[in-house]
Nucleic acid binder design. Sequence first.
DNA 1: GGGAATAGTAAACGTACGTTTATTTATAAC
DNA 2: GTTATAAATAAACGTACGTTTACTATTCCC
Lengths: 228, 228
Amino acid sequence: MAEANDTKDRILDTAEHLFAERGLGQTSLRQITSHAEVNLAAVNYHFGSKEGLIKAVLARRLEPLNRERIRRLDRLERQGSITLEGLIEAFIGPPLELSRDGGGGSRFVRLMGRTYTEHASFLHEHMRHANEALVSRFKPAFRMVLPELPKAELYWRLHFLLGVMSYVMAGNDMMQLLASSRNAELEEPREIIRRVVPFLAAGLRAPLPEELARMGREAVETDAMSPV
Amino acid sequence: MAEANDTKDRILDTAEHLFAERGLGQTSLRQITSHAEVNLAAVNYHFGSKEGLIKAVLARRLEPLNRERIRRLDRLERQGSITLEGLIEAFIGPPLELSRDGGGGSRFVRLMGRTYTEHASFLHEHMRHANEALVSRFKPAFRMVLPELPKAELYWRLHFLLGVMSYVMAGNDMMQLLASSRNAELEEPREIIRRVVPFLAAGLRAPLPEELARMGREAVETDAMSPV
DNA sequence: GGGAATAGTAAACGTACGTTTATTTATAAC
DNA sequence: GTTATAAATAAACGTACGTTTACTATTCCC
């Protein structure tokens, strides 16, 4: 027999790799087990089912990742120097930095970004549960640094933030839609953080739509008249 | 025989519906044809292959949609009143408004949002090509209203904008991750536009990271010391 | 109204999938 | 050294997939 959890880990590594590369649905257990050089039945033996494997792949990285995010938030609070920028960076920094470790980390981050748009209800439930502690820790912190923002508006904007984050994490496939030339710096996470934090901070701090309306923006009465 | 393009349209409508509901890969031709009450072979007869069907579903809506976006940009320019907010709304408004038509439109918009994260290279190529005219029309307009922004920075921020847009369009599956209570207004496109436009405008107008750095942000030397 | 072209259909093709079963091999306990 | 437990394996199971083939029905033109 092989060593301790050799087979299990080799399955997890290979699955992470292929899931990120091709997507969950498009990756078969046969592809995973043959790349990992283990028996086909080993997945069902160790993880019960493909769904169990997917959850295990996600959990293995997500737990330490979220622990690190919360650790950074703790440190910010301890230092008493909590800013919006710092908060954003504590939230999106760890996953983006994980994506530069060269190993499975980058693959996982892409996988995570894609998780949000996969079509499997068990996945959404799993991610919701896995992120519960994270969300309940960060939400009040955001409220604290943006006290003037109504609750509903804040949640909307955090939602937009998630959109940006998952899009960036999902990784660059659609970059070429806009970019006229491919440049290597695209993949550098610190570069991304440097650029995305000001964008998100400004968005989160934006004047309320009500204020803008009061300031007299050009009328947008397209409701009834716009032909679309 | 049935009337003109009855079968073709019924396949397109049903496919659009199911693709948006379950994803491209998870929707089989058998599901489509049985829901549409047409013969299984009709898809291959009319569209050649499943891939051909997917392209046809996308093209049918995407072409008028992008025409409308460009039409709005034309109108802005003609009026000489082109603002960043107006530009954003011309770009993301039509797809979001399409999603309120109750019919196939809303389904299509969700499908479109998901297209960006599906794992099929032919899809990315198809979308890139389908959006070519759109992009080459809007890119200079954004440059014009944000003249102080370096080219590279602008493209990054437009990329972030795409992230928000596709996330919002993909539709709310992950909303519940943040929202403590479900509210009906979530689905109202004008409500979303009202909230997302200021967010994006502020993000696009944000000070450059270089400027922020010069102003002396707290040092983030986590590169070597952070265990992640 | 005969004949090409177009549209629609039933049935089968070969392939791939996730999972299960039965069996063998290794590990640890006593 | 026997036995109980865990790990690994080969082979098969049943199901579903996209596509193709051979055939029938309809439409349109002369």
